[in-house]
């Protein structure tokens, strides 16, 4: 790991001010992507701004038809939150599928979303649950936030403070995990909202998380696994690597989408 200067602000304002002054800086959330990347010297920021001591980035709150989660909430905290389990059980279950117990005790929702790893789980939840990403500067719809692999709408120095999810009437996440990394080879999050269904896929796309309009249209008419019969995603834009080729991933998208709808329907 290359040397860096470490900063430990206690407010978002202080963090943003530090970010404005510090050259070549990165924010540190749970550190479970950034620190391994720095250990490999694939990243070597001169300044590291630790968001871990900022109380205002924590908390889970339900209000009307949304549940809002602080950016520094850890995966284990989301997975075990009574409010999340009650409002969107699929979201708590998804958080429980990230990494392993130790990773879930450190990794954060804000870090996952800001990183936008093409195989991360949270980006799929954000798209399917019509989330709003709230930063220290503005509110960004999830549909506008994720802009390709490891790319988001965040500006330099902008800090995610909260993520607000729309509570659906039914939802589920089906994940086919890489058994070694526990990242999603393919993960499909489906949600039924009052204004229609949403289907978001992670792990599969060569350009990161994406929605599947054909599936959404079919499920908006009939939220049942058989509604997806005959709908296939093209392998042209699928990721292909040593773990699975594009055709396999494209096939898995259909399989996992059916499983997710089945699970959501079974929950009632």
């Amino acid at each position: 790991m290359y040397a860096f200067e470490y900063h430990r602000p206690t407010s978002v304002k202080e963090a943003a001010s530090l970010a404005g002054q510090a050259e070549d800086m990165k924010f540190l959330a749970g550190g479970h992507t950034l620190l391994p990347t720095m250990k490999l010297r694939l990243a070597g920021p001169s300044n590291l701004i630790d968001l871990g001591q900022i109380a205002e980035l924590r908390g889970i709150e339900r209000s009307g038809d949304t549940i809002t989660i602080g950016a520094m909430m850890k995966h284990a905290e989301v997975a075990s939150s009574a409010e999340v389990k009650q409002a969107i059980p699929a979201l708590a279950e998804m958080a429980e599928l990230i990494g392993d117990p130790h990773v879930r005790n450190r990794g954060t929702i804000g870090g996952s979303i800001a990183n936008n790893d093409p195989s991360a789980d949270y980006p799929a939840a954000c798209l399917a649950l019509n989330a709003t990403i709230i930063t220290n500067q503005r509110k960004i719809a999830a549909d506008d936030f994720f802009q390709g692999i490891f790319t988001t709408a965040l500006e330099e120095g902008e800090i995610i403070t909260q993520v607000s999810f729309k509570i659906p009437s039914q939802a589920a996440y089906a994940k086919f995990r890489n058994p070694a990394s526990r990242y999603a080879l393919v993960g499909v999050f489906v949600a039924k909202h009052a204004d229609g269904a949403r289907v978001a896929v992670t792990g599969a796309g060569s350009n990161g998380v994406f929605r599947v309009p054909e599936m959404e249209q079919a499920l908006s008419g009939n939220f049942a696994p058989e509604a997806l019969d005959g709908i296939a995603v093209s392998q042209d834009e699928m990721n292909s690597d040593i773990h699975a080729d594009a055709a396999y991933r494209a096939h898995l998208v259909g399989v996992m989408a059916r499983r997710a709808v089945q699970a959501a329907s079974a929950r009632g």
Partner: peptide, 19 residues
């Protein structure tokens, strides 16, 4: 490398001492 940090199991190879 698992230790307990504030009572929770974490991987101490992926945590900075300053954290």
């Amino acid at each position: 490398c698992v230790v307990h940090l504030n009572g929770q199991a974490v991987k101490s190879c992926t945590t900075l001492a300053v954290q």
